[in-house]
Design a binder for these strands. Structure first.
Length: 879
RNA sequence: GUGGGGGUGCCGGAGCCUGGCCAAACGGGCAGGACUUAAGAUCCUGUGGCAAGCGCCUACGCGGGUUCGAAUCCCGUCCCCCACACCA
């Protein structure tokens, strides 16, 4: 009774030490086991340290990795730090530290805490992107891209975050705001910047998504982002020059009544006539101020425009239509100009309404004063194409135009090249030297890495500009005076290939040994947040394609399977944050409940991909189970397994394996709970079964299972044990069905007790075949009548009682009529169950009664029948 | 607007694909009981309504449909969440 609470904290410390000493999770290439690469997206080491959310994220990967180890795979499960990046720089500045020190400290903190939650990482392979040994290879890959024309420099309108004091990639602009500062408006600046040509692989990035075993949601988000659309590029003649225009609706070309060119179009000037110049300028000024307001108001933003003075010739019907400059056309998509068909495009429609331009319907169907008709229909007002179905017309019209060299089929993507330049310090320096004579010269490979100078001043602008010594160098080509590129790379560059570095983290001569990468990669199971769908998860694929083209790796998709974990919120569903003071720290939780308890709890609340809330009360339930498990092992009598346990343990092994494999960890926690609850009821259990149970629990609760494993007299580590095999023949569903009978009898006894309101000393259980096997006798009846078909009506009447099993039983019996004569569970069997469970029944109802189980029928039974007219259960007599 | 995901008992959250022992796993809460001088911890029981050993009624957003039978399948409808958002 006066059990001492196990000292969870020292148990976990003890085993963490053992794992480390024995290098239990270090992965070796030399193994005859099949390899398995489990990777969680590496963390950004912040000075605030780990919170419970991290613990959840990484526990999910850990459970899976541990499961795979047990299943006999040679598992690579590494961790590292995505250490470069703006937040570290900003946090360091705020703390008055150098980013290097700040980062080192953060990493130290993370490492200690990671270890204290018992993650099965191979600590010999830690990768730190802030180390020159790592970013040297960022630079090397960059040079290769430069060589192949996949890295380039261009001046363009870029997104500038005044808060970050740097430019951002398209993917990092959210609703016109910076992805890190949702209250900071992104500005448009024209700067010379470095880009990676992600569009080079746009088609493959798009098309191959379908082959990935990724969440559908993520796949569709990525597809949307890449935005492939098939269409036609049609030439419109304006002022004697050809202006190609992209459209997906060539079928509506006879409905074109005007054209709209993007207000930001670089060649807008060519279209503006002398008379319209003032008006256009006025318009441009106006929309500039609008765009500086809020992109969120895009919805309410009116379609606005101004006539340029030029006219375009519609190649389909030779009509002259006015060309407008408009605010709703995107300059860098397609050709930055659209053919406007107000009758069949809502945007064009609104524009036409506003400026009183003709709206000409060319496709039949619902079309009103308020809305354009963008759906299908038949063509009208379209010359020789009238009467055609519009889908058909798309083909006909475009081939007709193509024949006349006025159009060609094209594919357009929304995806833009990746802007990687950042005007900040804490990133990989771009290995380029600018020379007045030679231009942008790549740093020779032998001079890599270009390391970040320690000595810089943080304040306004790019800190790298403050170290003249670092900037001023000789040109590698002509040895004249030259300057280093001071832009650094976006932090997502670092994370685009880190999984390869884990395969060979210490290589001094190469980014990684292709042989080692070949062995481990691709990643078998990747785990990380859904927020990366359109950033990291595109970049990492892009890099794989490039490295494959370089023949450094043999695959083109880096991660076969992807899993997104759900977020952990604080108590009551409130987002955890320092300012709200509701951050849960794993250290605290470990002290109070034990980290295994926390792991079990977090996994038991919801499916791993769903969000969940922390709850102090909730974790109590997990704690109860953990205590109970300790109790079992402290009090167990080692002996023989009952039939019931034999069946249960085999069944659990079989089922829980599926749960782990499919990330259904929640189901696993339930199954484990049921298993241990049953074990607790047993008088004696075999050592073997106890050991198996520990292995099943190990992925979720690694520390306590080690402890109990040792208690059973084992010297080895349970974490690297072999997953037990199950024996299908031991699994006897009947055993469980019968054991549920015991419970139901107890329920009944209790109810009767309430009714008779008196004590009893003797309990009789009278078992009769005729009561129990209604379905069997029914089927037998049908069979004896020669009715081979079980009629619908029979089903309907009996299903309520027997449910799903009725079909199975019925079909089975029909196939094998001999069996029907016997029934499935014999009365003697049932009686046996009650006899065996006498002690259990007593403990549940009344300790000091005697129990008799009677199978014969007779007058006593008749008497009882009246009292307990419940077929399917034994008659109960209390005396 | 487009794409994706949802609406289940006091709460969280399974089940839905493959319709039937589903008044609905598991956890939390709450109530009662056991143990205790007491509290805590622990354990047991209960937890839609009526009835109280059969069972009946009402229930899985709302309204229909299919079926002997629907939380589960189909149609319509309302609401919520997330992502993208003027991409021609």
């Amino acid at each position: 009774m006066e059990e001492k609470e196990p000292d969870f904290l020292s148990i976990s410390k003890k085993w963490q030490k053992r794992w480390e000493e024995e290098k239990a999770f270090e992965a070796k290439e030399s193994s005859d086991k099949p390899k398995f690469y489990v990777l969680e997206m590496f963390p950004y080491p912040s000075g605030d340290g780990l919170h419970m959310g991290h613990a959840l994220n990484y526990s999910i990967g850990d459970v899976y990795a541990r499961f795979k180890i047990l299943k006999g795979f040679n598992v690579l499960h590494p961790i590292g730090y995505d250490a470069l990046g703006l937040p570290a720089e900003n946090a360091a500045i705020k703390a008055g530290e150098h980013p290097q020190e700040y980062t080192n400290n953060s990493i130290r903190g993370f490492t200690v805490q990671f270890k204290s939650i018992g993650l099965s990482y191979d600590w010999s392979r830690v990768v730190n992107t802030a180390s020159p040994n790592y970013y040297k290879w960022d630079q090397w890959i960059f040079l290769k891209m430069l060589e192949k024309g996949l890295a380039y420099q261009k001046t363009s309108a870029v997104n500038w975050c005044p808060e970050c004091e740097t430019v951002l990639a398209n993917e990092q602009v959210v609703n016109g705001k910076c992805w890190r500062h949702d209250d900071t408006e992104v500005e448009i600046k024209h700067l010379k910047q470095w880009f990676l040509r992600t569009t080079h692989y746009a088609d493959e990035l798009y098309e191959k998504i379908d082959e990935l075993e990724w969440p559908e949601k993520t796949k569709s988000m990525q597809k949307n982002w890449i935005g492939k659309s098939h269409g036609v590029e049609i030439d419109f003649e304006i002022n004697g020059k050809n202006w190609p225009v992209f459209t997906t609706r060539p079928d509506t070309i006879f409905g074109v009544t005007f054209m709209v060119v993007a207000a930001q179009h670089p060649k807008l000037g060519e279209l503006v006539t002398e008379e319209q110049k003032l008006e256009v300028q006025e318009f441009l000024r106006k929309i500039k101020t609008v765009s500086q307001k809020s992109m969120k108001e895009v919805d309410e933003l009116n379609k606005e425009g101004v006539f340029t003075g030029s006219y375009a010739i519609n190649p389909a019907n030779g009509e002259n239509v006015p060309v407008y400059a408009g605010n709703f056309v995107v300059a860098d998509y397609g050709s930055g100009m659209v053919m406007a068909v107000p009758a069949h495009d809502q945007r064009d429609f609104e524009f036409a309404k506003k400026y009183g331009i003709e709206i000409r319907q060319v496709i039949t169907g619902g079309f009103s004063d308020k809305r354009a008709h963008s759906g299908p229909g038949k063509l009208i007002n379209s010359g020789q194409f009238n009467e055609l179905n519009n889908e058909k017309a798309k083909e006909e019209i475009s081939s007709w135009l193509a024949k006349r060299k006025k159009a060609r089929n094209t594919v357009n993507f929304k995806l833009r090249d990746w802007l990687i330049s950042r005007q900040r310090y804490w990133g990989t320096p771009i290995p380029v030297i600018h020379c007045d004579k030679c231009g942008a010269v790549p740093v020779p490979e032998k001079d890599l890495p270009v390391t970040l100078p320690k000595d810089v001043k943080f304040g306004k602008g790019n800190p790298l500009l403050t170290n003249k010594e670092w900037i001023n160098v000789k040109c590698p080509k002509c040895s004249g005076d030259a300057k280093r590129e001071t832009d650094t790379m976006d932090t997502f560059v670092n994370s685009s290939w880190y999984y390869l570095r884990y395969c060979d983290p210490k290589n001094k001569d190469m980014a990684f040994d292709p042989k080692k990468a070949e062995y481990w990669c691709p990643i078998d199971q990747y785990i990380g947040g859904a927020e990366h769908a359109c950033m990291h998860l595109i970049y990492i694929r892009f890099y794989a394609k490039f490295l494959n083209d370089l023949r450094l790796i043999s695959f083109r998709e880096p991660a076969k399977k992807l899993f997104h974990q759900g977020m952990l919120s604080g108590e009551g569903g409130i987002k955890m944050s320092k300012s709200k003071g509701n951050v849960i720290v794993p250290d605290e939780v470990s002290k109070r409940y034990g980290i295994d308890t926390a792991r079990y709890f977090l996994l038991s609340i919801a499916s791993p991909d769903k969000p969940r809330d922390w709850s102090e009360k909730g974790i109590q339930g997990a704690l109860r189970l953990i205590r109970r498990i300790f109790w079992i092992f402290e009090n167990v009598k080692i002996g023989k397994d009952s039939e019931k346990i034999k069946s249960l343990i085999n069944k659990t092994i079989r089922d829980i394996e599926k749960d782990y494999e499919s990330f259904d960890f929640r189901a696993a926690t339930i199954r484990l709970k049921e298993l241990f609850e049953e074990l607790e009821r047993e008088k004696e259990i075999s050592k073997e079964t106890l050991q198996k149970s520990l292995i099943l629990l190990n992925p979720i609760c690694p520390h306590i299972t080690e402890e109990l494993w040792e208690k059973l007299g084992n010297k080895s580590l349970v974490s690297v044990e072999k997953w037990p095999a199950f024996d299908e023949s031991c699994i006897d569903e009947k055993v469980e069905v019968l054991s549920s009978l015991v419970n139901s009898v107890c329920d009944d006894v209790r109810t009767i007790q309430k009714l008779i309101k008196r004590d009893f000393t003797r309990l009789k259980l009278l078992i009769s075949e005729e009561w129990k096997y209604g379905l069997y006798s029914l089927i037998q009846n049908e069979l004896s009548k020669g009715n081979k078909e079980i009629t619908k009506a029979v089903m309907a009447s009996e299903f309520r009682k027997y449910g799903k099993d009725a079909i199975r039983i019925a079909e089975d019996l029909l196939k094998n009529p001999a069996k029907a004569m016997m029934g499935e569970i014999k009365p003697e069997e049932e009686a046996g169950i009650y006899k065996e469970s006498v002690e259990q029944i007593k403990s549940k109802i009344q300790k000091n009664c005697s129990i008799e189980v009677i199978t014969e029928s007779g007058s006593e039974l008749e008497k009882a029948k009246r009292k307990t007219a419940n077929p399917g259960k034994p008659a109960i007599v209390l005396e």
